[in-house]
Design a protein around this nucleic acid. Structure first.
Lengths: 154, 154
DNA sequence: CACAAGTGCTTGAACTGTCAACTAGATTCC
DNA sequence: GGAATCTAGTTGACAGTTCAAGCACTTGTG
């Protein structure tokens, strides 16, 4: 159990070292990059990146300052805001992804047997299902494959 | 994978709600409570609670302000400091433990089959061994049983 | 239409964690 | 013995998260 905490700490450290980016921010960029036109409503983005609204606001503010994300106003709902991944942001993500994927591979995939990976996947699905029942996680996040964001390479 | 992140978030939230305590602080109290005379050298405590020196310093400062931990100077090494769990701290831990144990049970143990728990234990051990090879985790932490700190009940 | 309630997003303060100095005492080694 | 080095612990600045509050707009209801 402890191992999982430490494992993610390791991912976090590696990503911070290689890309100067916390995992939460990386996650946001990935979700944006997957979206059509690389743009999403803030709430939608918050749900998909497992982030609170407030956290996302702060994060996007920071990413906007880096020039990686741009805010546009929503034409249909004047309260709304739309986050758009800029070309610079996309390039930054593209640059950051390989090292992160490699980190996940090295510390997780390479350590476990195919059988264990299968078991881990099942266990994760079960837990995720339970959390979804509690409303902790929105349904749209459930089908995310094993390596969080590892599929980022465009 | 995502599930593990969210699972620990859930533990964190539950513990914060029930005890007003972050998991890292809870962990520190648990390690102290396990030690002989409920006292440990700072570095030792840092290693056992998977905490950096600096983090521990800040944490103990906060716990000291709450009256749950006391600092004493080390007789054999005048650089050293010893953290001591006070009776109030012990009582606070005793009060916080049941809810945390229950949270872990509800969100993890009750969700998985005995077989899956067995698999998860093996997977954790493997990963922990790998991280230990990297020097990320000190050997003394390895034998920690499944529920982090769940054994806290005195 | 108007007013209450709800939604989308932002903001600021408080808190936890990290990083890079820094102090002070212990070791090493010539 | 004494300079260089190492170790224990602290500190302060900063980054990210959360929480509670707030603003602006939309929707529901009479």
């Amino acid at each position: 159990m402890l191992s999982h905490l430490l494992l993610f700490d390791q991912f976090e450290r590696d990503l911070q070292r290689d890309a100067g980016l916390p995992m939460a921010y990386y996650e946001i960029l990935v979700r944006l990059s997957e979206a059509p036109d690389r743009r999403l409503r803030m709430s939608d983005l918050a749900d998909r990146s497992q982030s609170s609204r407030s956290r996302l606001s702060h994060a996007v503010a920071r990413l906007e300052a880096s020039g990686w994300v741009r805010r546009e106003s929503c034409p249909t709902d004047r309260r709304g805001a739309i986050a758009v991944l800029t070309d610079e942001g996309f390039a930054a993500l593209r640059a950051a992804a390989p090292a992160h994927v490699e980190s996940v591979r090295r510390h997780l995939f390479d350590q476990l047997t195919p059988e264990q990976l299968e078991q881990l996947r099942d266990i994760s699905t079960t837990i995720l299902g339970h959390l979804a029942d509690l409303g902790v996680v929105c349904a749209s996040a459930i089908e995310v494959p094993l390596p969080t964001g590892a599929e980022a390479a465009p």
